[in-house]
């Protein structure tokens, strides 16, 4: 059992938790992920590490409440326990030998992009961050990004905060204005990453994407997380989760991500009803 030592609601749909898991905290690095199971009948879900404190033995997760499992997780209070919590899994984001990078985060993906940005920043790399959200109310981690970015651009779909539009606009502007990035690292919805890759490809700027597909064990056993990368099958859990964005078949990844859409809908409704009942 793994104790939730801190819980904070970042906005109406995104929650942050610090979980006491000293073995995981000891090893965790930016870009890696954990797998958790909320309770006895729970499913195993992967969540990318959003931070860690080795001294306190805690690992930070930030998740969007999208389905049954994340709703159940969000019901857990500070001081309560998560049934299973294993990691760190996957490979850390490579930060060596880069002088100037652009981090492009979208939505809750920004939570995962943050430790990557911080790592680059700590290693003396020039960091430009572009983070995008649907609207002002959903903006998270602005201060944290400010403190590790040499330049921060915030965009919202509806223009209610920062620049109006999508993340690829300021990215393209920066590139065209002559910013020379050694690498672009993008983390967020698949469709966003697909368009980030489409933006950087003409300029041939190395672009790393962080994939977060459906998986069970996270150690290479199930193969559920497979992607087509450069025409070959790759497993996100052991070969990734970071991949060369130019090689990833995003259309296939997007299709695979909604395989259980029907089931998830039923689960979500069942969960909503359950929690409503309990609240009464």
């Amino acid at each position: 059992m793994y104790k939730i030592v801190k819980k904070r609601l970042l906005n109406s749909t995104v929650t942050m938790m610090d979980v006491y898991a000293p073995l995981v905290a000891e090893k965790a690095q930016a870009g890696q992920f954990i797998i958790l199971r909320v309770d006895e009948n729970g499913e195993r879900i992967p969540l990318t590490v959003a931070g860690f404190n080795r001294a306190l033995g805690t690992v930070r997760i930030i998740f969007q409440i999208v389905g049954g499992t994340t709703m159940r997780l969000n019901e857990k209070k500070e001081g309560e326990f998560i049934r299973d919590f294993v990691g760190p899994l996957g490979n850390a984001t490579k930060t060596e030998n880069l002088k100037k990078v652009c981090i492009v985060g979208g939505g809750v993906g920004c939570a995962i992009a943050l430790p990557v940005a911080q790592k680059f920043h700590d290693e003396g790399c020039e960091v430009h961050s572009i983070i995008g959200f649907r609207n002002k109310d959903l903006v998270i981690l602005e201060d944290e990004f400010k403190s590790c970015s040499d330049k921060l651009t915030i965009v919202t779909d509806d223009g209610s905060y920062g620049q109006k539009g999508v993340v690829t606009l300021p990215l393209k502007q920066s590139i065209e204005s002559g910013e020379k990035y050694d690498e672009v690292i993008t983390i967020g919805p698949l469709i966003m990453m697909k368009f980030v890759v489409a933006t950087t490809r003409p300029y041939n700027i190395p672009t790393t994407v962080s994939m977060n597909p459906i998986m069970i064990d996270g150690t290479g056993m199930c193969g559920g997380c497979r992607l087509t990368v450069g025409g070959k099958t790759a497993f996100a859990c052991v070969d990734g989760p970071d991949f060369n964005g130019f090689d990833v078949d995003f259309d296939e990844a997007m299709a695979r991500s909604n395989i259980y859409a029907e089931f998830e809908k039923t689960e979500r409704e069942a969960c909503c009803n359950l929690f409503k009942k309990e609240a009464k």
Partner: peptide
């Protein structure tokens, strides 16, 4: 890569370890 293609490992793990065949299992 199509939806509905499983490795036996994944299919069996969902069914056995995660008990996806039971009504109250949260694993699809």
């Amino acid at each position: 890569g199509l939806k509905g293609v499983y490795s036996a490992n994944e299919f069996l793990t969902r069914a056995n370890l995660m008990k996806a065949y039971e009504k109250d299992s949260q694993t699809p």
